[in-house]
C-alpha cells in the first residue's frame, strides 16, 4: 500500500477493464514521473470525454454534437440503414469503405441472462426512423453469435411487415485464408451454407 494520492490513482486505474493491480501500479508511477504538460493533457482529455462526447440523437453513435459525422454527411444515402450493436462496429464497417448508407447503434443485443430486453436497446428509436419511409433496405449487422442472431431476428420480425427489405450479413469462411486453416466447426458450417455459383 502506498500513501494518499498515488494509491488513489492506482485504485482508480485498477477499475479500468483489462488493467490488473500490477499494470495499475506501473501506469501510476509512469504518470508520476511524466512531464507535467503530458499529464495535464491527459486530464483535460478525460474531462472532455465526459463533458463533450454524447450520443448522436439520430443513430446513437458517439458524437461531439447533436448529430454524428456520418448522420451529418450529405453525400451518404438514406436508402440503406445498417443496424449494429456498438459504436465500435460502426468503425469496423467504415474501415471497409463499402457502405455509403447510414447507421443505427442499438447499444447492445438482446440477452435475457444479463437482463437486457428490447426495451433496453434503441429499438423504438429505430422503428421511428423507419417510419419516414426513406429506407429501402435494412442491413442487420449484429454479431454472429446467439444473442446477435436473436436480436437480428427480433428486428426483422418487426420491420418486414413495413415492406422494407431486410438483409443479414453473410457468415462463413474468412477470405484470404487457406481452407486447411479453418477450424472444423467453421468449415463444417460453411459447407452446410454453400451456395450455387
Amino acid at each position: 500500500m502506498y500513501e494518499g494520492a498515488i494509491q488513489d490513482l492506482i485504485d482508480e486505474l485498477g477499475r479500468l477493464p483489462g488493467v490488473g493491480p500490477k499494470s495499475a501500479q506501473r501506469i501510476a508511477f509512469h504518470i508520476l514521473s511524466a512531464d507535467p504538460a503530458d499529464v495535464t493533457r491527459l486530464a483535460t482529455v478525460l474531462n472532455r470525454v465526459k463533458d463533450q462526447v454524447r450520443f448522436c440523437t439520430t443513430c446513437f453513435n458517439v458524437a461531439e454534437s447533436e448529430q454524428c459525422r456520418i448522420c451529418r454527411d450529405p453525400r451518404r444515402t438514406n436508402e440503406f440503414l445498417c443496424v449494429v450493436e456498438e459504436p465500435k462496429d460502426v468503425v469496423a464497417i467504415e474501415r471497409t469503405g463499402e457502405f455509403r448508407g447510414r447507421y443505427h447503434v442499438l447499444g447492445g443485443a438482446i440477452n435475457p441472462l444479463e437482463g437486457i430486453g428490447p426495451d433496453n436497446l434503441r429499438v423504438r428509436e429505430l422503428m421511428a426512423r423507419l417510419g419516414s419511409g426513406e429506407v429501402k433496405e435494412l442491413i442487420l449487422a449484429t454479431d454472429p453469435n446467439t444473442e446477435g442472431e436473436a436480436t437480428a431476428t427480433y428486428v426483422a420480425l418487426l420491420v418486414k411487415p413495413m415492406g422494407i427489405d431486410v438483409t443479414r450479413l453473410a457468415s462463413g469462411l474468412p477470405v484470404g485464408g487457406d481452407l486447411e486453416y479453418a477450424d472444423e466447426i467453421t468449415l463444417g458450417r460453411a459447407f452446410e451454407g454453400r451456395r450455387a455459383v
Partner: peptide, 20 residues
C-alpha cells in the same frame, strides 16, 4: 465436428430462453 457448434448454440439458446 460441426455438431460441436450446433450443440453449443442450442445450449446457449435454451439458457437464454430459460432466463427470459
Amino acid at each position: 465436428p460441426r455438431y460441436a457448434g450446433v450443440r453449443a448454440d442450442y445450449d446457449r439458446v435454451v439458457k437464454q430462453r430459460n432466463a427470459l
